[in-house]
Every structure is written in structure tokens, then in C-alpha cells.
């Protein structure tokens, strides 16, 4: 079998067949279930418009996907080193870039599964309301580069630090900073600093696109700038991961 396919299969299999991966997916559904139940049991939340609720759930799904990517990416190369399996991996016929892509394929599968598991929740909260199909499409379009960008970024840190704990803690700090717009509403980001942060933050770009498409019923074409921001984030993170893996000290 092609070595890169072999690595891809190993990485994605770890998510779908290992107890750790399934436990994570169960935890993901529990979080989304608790959020959904809050939406119907809390008077204030239950009166929110459907579109507003769909927007909230989309933000949560993107944040959970990014969290899984960060945890998985931090473990990718530093974990191999700590388990003593990095040198056998480097001795395979794979180039460094191919190793990075193989490692990332596990994250692509993780995000696809996360996305598929989130669809029933989006239907449950958004069915009967406005723009549900657009919400599903927007989550795929903006969520995928956003989440994979976090995966590449933490993989790069994993290669640079060579230590899972350091890579994970640094990645989590970066995720907490960039994902802060999930908690801070647009009203709290109206200062000059907030607007500057929003302009370059891929998480803000994705959330603002969700808001625009789902709540304000704006067309996808109007989100080109925001799509460019998340795409640039993905490309920069890819470049960082590739460079870090090449510079990695054995």
C-alpha cells in the first residue's frame, strides 16, 4: 500500500476505532445535547429566534472542531517523539510534507465526522426557521478551513516544541484568544481594537459569515472577504506546519 495512504488510514482509524476517539465523539454529542436542552429549557434562550440559535450552535460546533484539531495536532509529531515512534516514521519513504499531510488526514476525517454528527443538532434547532440549508453549507465552507487551520497550527507547534504538553497548552491559549468572539457578542467587539482584531481573526471571519448568511440572509458572494481571511489562515498554518516539520530536531 502507498505509504501516505497507510499513514492516512492509521490516523483516521485512531479516531473512528479507538476508544479515545469514540469517547471524544460521545463527549461532543453530549456538549451539543446540553446546549440544545438549554435552548428549550431556559426561558430567555427559548425565545431566541431560530436563526440566532442556529448561529450559536454553528459557533459552538466550529469551536469544538477546532478544539479537537488542536488536541490531535499537538499530539501528532511530539506524541510520536514521546512514544519513540518518530524515527521509524521518518525512516519511511515519506517526505516530511507527506508526513504532515498524512497526519492531517486524520484531522480531516475528525472534522468530517464532527460535521456529520452536528447536522441532526442543526436540524433540531433550526428546522422550521430560516436559512437552515445555507447554515449547513456555511459551516462546511467556513468551518473546514478554520478547523484544519488550527490543526496545522498545532501540528507546527508540536514539531517545533517536540513536547505534547507545551504544544497543547500553547495551542489552547491561541485557540482561546482567537475563539473569544464565540463568547463576546458583536456589540462587545465594536471598539477600534475589537474591529482590528475581527478583521484579521479567522474565527471572527467565520462567525461573522455565519451571522451574515443565517441571520441577515446575505448571499454567499458577499462573504468573499471573510472567506479569504479563513483561507489565508489555512494557508499560513499549512506553511507553518510544513516549515516546522522540516526544521524539526530529531
Amino acid at each position: 500500500m502507498n505509504p501516505i495512504l497507510s499513514l492516512t488510514r492509521k490516523e483516521s482509524g485512531e479516531l473512528l476505532s479507538s476508544g479515545r476517539g469514540l469517547a471524544w465523539l460521545t463527549a461532543l454529542t453530549v456538549v451539543l445535547s446540553v446546549l440544545s436542552l438549554l435552548l428549550v429549557s431556559d426561558t430567555e434562550l427559548s425565545l431566541l429566534d431560530n436563526a440566532q440559535v442556529v448561529y450559536m450552535v454553528m459557533g459552538t460546533i466550529a469551536a469544538l472542531g477546532a478544539l479537537l484539531a488542536v488536541v490531535s495536532g499537538s499530539d501528532s509529531l511530539a506524541g510520536e517523539r514521546e512514544r519513540g515512534s518518530l524515527i521509524p516514521l521518518l525512516l519511511t519513504p515519506l517526505r516530511t510534507d507527506e508526513i504532515v499531510l498524512g497526519k492531517m488526514s486524520g484531522q480531516v476525517v475528525a472534522w468530517c465526522v464532527t460535521y456529520l454528527l452536528s447536522l441532526p443538532y442543526l436540524w433540531a434547532v433550526g428546522g422550521g426557521g430560516q436559512n437552515l440549508p445555507q447554515a449547513i453549507l456555511a459551516l462546511a465552507l467556513f468551518g473546514t478551513p478554520l478547523v484544519l487551520g488550527f490543526g496545522f497550527f498545532s501540528l507546527g507547534l508540536s514539531a517545533r516544541f517536540g513536547n505534547v504538553r507545551t504544544a497543547l497548552s500553547t495551542s489552547l491559549v491561541a485557540l482561546a484568544l482567537l475563539a473569544s468572539p464565540v463568547l463576546l457578542g458583536p456589540g462587545l467587539r465594536q471598539s477600534a481594537v475589537g474591529r482590528m482584531f475581527d478583521a484579521v481573526n479567522p474565527f471572527s471571519a467565520a462567525l461573522n459569515a455565519f451571522d451574515s448568511v443565517v441571520i441577515d440572509s446575505q448571499p454567499f458572494l458577499a462573504q468573499a472577504t471573510r472567506f479569504a481571511v479563513v483561507l489565508v489562515w489555512l494557508l499560513l498554518a499549512m506553511a507553518f506546519a510544513g516549515r516546522s516539520a522540516r526544521d524539526m530536531e530529531i
Binding site: S33, S36, S46, Y121, W123, A124, V125, G127, G128
Partner: peptide
């Protein structure tokens, strides 16, 4: 249009 519990409950309990 607001969230309807009859749609949420089966998903919220069923998926986990």
C-alpha cells in the same frame, strides 16, 4: 419561529 422541544429532545437524548 423559535426552538421547538419536540424536535430537540429526540436528538439531544438520542445522539449521545
Amino acid at each position: 419561529p423559535v426552538v421547538e422541544s419536540r424536535r430537540i429532545l429526540p436528538v439531544a437524548f438520542g445522539m449521545p
